[in-house]
């Protein structure tokens, strides 16, 4: 009996080591380049350099986030400070430290705030990707690093945005990766980015057709969409600007990134 127990512990630890290794492997190497944003933040920023970096191949899963919460109890839903997460934070879990039967551990975690997502990535020595990094990788189809002029690809992405949130999310990683080896930037969940609060888009989109409200914004920056009909990127910007750092929603998850030199 004791032997059995020991064996179980060994296997458990071995499993942890394996998990740690696959986490290292779980990142894709993204060669830097130029991002041409659909919605240049200013006329000077039609072409934005993106440095080479690493990005998680998959969004962080429920099971992974559960481990994090167990190790860092200040991020449990019953311990967290309200300024860091709203009342819906991890509210879909059965208890503060268990998912329950209804949630598959391999689904992407949702109902997490920006502070919590950021803390998770930092606990792994990583960080959240920036909006530019995220958009740079998200512009790739399975064949091309920049597929954003590809109408068919664009329409496929749009398809997800026009459907309501499913009651059960599919498991992470069931469709092919994109050019960089990154999975599911589209079609699964929205994702936090480090600088989600950087878009100086008015909450009334129509105001942005002209110059930004001088009363609200310091500094210049006429917002000009280069591709007015790219509804998907419009919707991502709209979604991000609706968020506050302590917000959580049932379709919002995240993945981590890392600077090139660290890996």
């Amino acid at each position: 009996m004791r032997l059995l127990l020991l064996a179980a512990i060994c296997i458990g630890q071995f499993g942890l080591i394996l998990a740690a290794q696959s986490a290292e492997k779980g990142m894709a190497y993204v060669v830097g380049g130029i991002l041409k944003p659909f919605y240049p933040p200013s006329p000077k920023e039609r072409e934005i350099p993106v440095h080479t970096f690493w990005m998680n191949k998959f969004p962080v899963t429920e099971a992974q986030f559960l481990q994090f919460v167990k190790k860092n109890p200040q991020w449990r839903r019953d311990h967290i400070k309200r300024i860091f997460a709203d009342k819906q934070y991890l509210s879909h879990w059965v208890t503060p430290i268990s998912l329950g039967n209804k949630i598959n551990g391999e689904q992407p975690v949702t109902q997490v705030s920006w502070f919590a997502a950021k803390a998770y990535c930092e606990s792994e020595g990583k960080r959240l990707p920036t909006e530019n990094e995220w958009e740079y990788v998200a512009g790739a189809s399975d064949k091309k690093p920049d597929a954003r002029k590809d109408l068919e690809w664009r329409n496929r992405i749009l398809d997800w945005y026009t459907k309501p949130t499913p009651s059960v999310f599919p498991k992470v990683g069931q469709s092919p990766p994109n050019y960089w080896g990154v999975y599911y930037l589209h079609g699964l969940v929205w994702e936090w980015v480090l600088d989600f609060n950087s878009s100086l888009v008015s909450s009334d989109n129509r105001e942005n057709a002209t110059s930004p409200d001088k009363n609200r914004f310091c500094g210049a920056g006429a917002l000009v969409a280069t591709e007015k009909d790219d509804y998907a990127s419009f919707m991502r910007i709209a979604f991000r600007t609706s968020l506050k750092a302590h917000y959580t929603t049932s379709s919002l998850g995240f993945r981590c990134a890392q600077d090139e030199k660290k890996s």
Binding site: P41, S42, K44, E45, I83, W114, F115, L194, D195, N197, S198, S199, L200, N215, R216, F217, C218, G219, A220, G221, T241, K244, A245
Partner: peptide, 24 residues
């Protein structure tokens, strides 16, 4: 900086010329 901006509901973005775009 970004944490504090987030707590105070600020939107801000560093500009290429060293300045910042931000809500007041």
């Amino acid at each position: 900086v970004r944490d504090l901006a987030a707590l105070l509901n600020y939107t801000y973005r560093p500009l290429p010329d060293g300045g910042f775009n931000h809500t007041s």
